[in-house]
């Protein structure tokens, strides 16, 4: 399929040319599959000279038209990815940020495209990916432990905020604040939030958390984990919340018996994390953060659905996202035994 030479494309070439100090010709530019709103674009370009001379395989990532309130904008995500990549974390290499709205009418950044499969349903079905599910789960646990071991103050990310009075109580408060502005009453979620407040664990260590660390958000290559993607939610938090998140039912893509991301048992994942981090993990805290994961995803799904319901952004995928909320609510009641 031929690439249509739009003025947008010409502006993009000019931007890339200035960034790399050479002449740049884009040879492929198309949306990457997945995501309710196209945020990631496959971008191939020929660089005439300079440090990037030759054909470069890139990804262009833009701001969403109606972002989720708890997520960072592209400019901040760019800084996070650069900072963790510089510390040796398996993250994409982010090259250039463009905040000039005259190029694509929204902020975007460019990163190197990496090999591997991200789509959750493919990852859980194919036990050869990532060197096999056991290896993949082990490498994910190691990478998570490495992220948690970073000294957040050394990263130069001054916008990261410590949740107060504790990560758990701050999350419960934020969920409720959203429900205050959501047009429809959600008693089951309110019930779950009351449980989260009553059962909140004592504040533990506060570290850099990825906060969307799950199947679907990493690239699994032939032999192992390639990279952790989607850093837009990264912030300071309880390391156990990242473990609870990857264990939530919604990230198993049908492989429900494999609690950790549809690829491993929770115990196997937690043990690998313990070996890598040297930190003993209290399983009761993971139980707690699994409940929180379902509540948090329910809130995000409500927000996504609201983008459609409000009429701002009519979209079938967003509309259907609202319909996952009931099963998340059921899961919250099941896990807390607050129902039946």
């Amino acid at each position: 399929m031929g690439l249509s030479r739009t003025p947008e494309l010409a502006r993009l070439e000019t931007f890339l040319g200035k960034a790399a100090e050479t002449k740049v010709t884009v040879t492929d530019f198309q949306p990457l599959p997945g995501g309710a709103v196209q945020e990631n674009w496959r971008l191939d370009a020929d660089f005439a000279g300079g440090a990037f001379a030759g054909r470069q395989e890139l990804v262009l990532r833009t701001d969403a038209p109606a972002p989720i309130p708890s997520s960072h904008d592209r400019a901040k995500e760019f800084r996070i990815i650069q900072a963790v990549h510089a510390r040796g974390i398996k993250a994409p290499e982010a090259l250039w940020l463009c905040t000039d709205q005259s190029v694509l009418e929204k902020t975007f950044f460019i990163m190197r495209r990496l090999p591997g499969i991200a789509a959750g349903h493919r990852v859980v079905k194919d036990d050869t990916l990532g060197g096999g599910h056991d290896t993949l789960a082990e490498e994910l646990a190691v990478e998570l432990a490495r992220i948690h071991a970073l000294d957040p103050r050394s990263l130069g990310l001054d916008f990261l905020a410590e949740p107060r009075p504790s990560p758990a109580l701050a999350a419960a408060r934020d969920f409720r604040a959203y429900l205050d502005v959501h047009p429809d009453p959600r008693p089951v979620l309110e019930w779950g939030i009351a449980w989260l407040e009553r059962e909140a664990p004592p504040k533990g260590s506060v570290v850099l958390c990825h906060r969307d660390f799950r199947t679907g958000n990493y690239l699994a290559g032939k032999d192992g984990l390639v990279a952790i993607l989607d850093w837009e939610f990264a912030n300071l938090g309880d390391p156990d919340s990242d473990i609870g998140w990857i264990c939530a039912r919604c990230w198993r893509f049908g492989a429900v018996e494999k609690v950790a991301g549809g690829i491993a048992s929770r115990e196997a994942f937690v043990r690998a994390y313990e070996r890598a981090s040297g930190r003993k993990v209290d399983r009761a805290r993971i139980d707690y953060y699994e409940v929180m994961a379902h509540a948090r995803w329910a809130i995000i799904a409500l927000q996504q659905g609201q983008r459609h319901v409000s009429g701002r952004e009519p979209s079938l995928e967003l509309a259907l996202t609202a319909h996952v909320v009931p099963e998340l609510e059921l899961e919250i009641l099941r896990l807390t035994q607050e129902g039946a």
Binding site: P187, V188, V324, V325, P326, E327, L330, G339, A340
Partner: peptide, 16 residues
Amino acid sequence: GRHLWECALQQVRVSN
């Protein structure tokens, strides 16, 4: 708790 369980159950019967 029982009431909310019933609500969630009925909604999941519609959604999934």
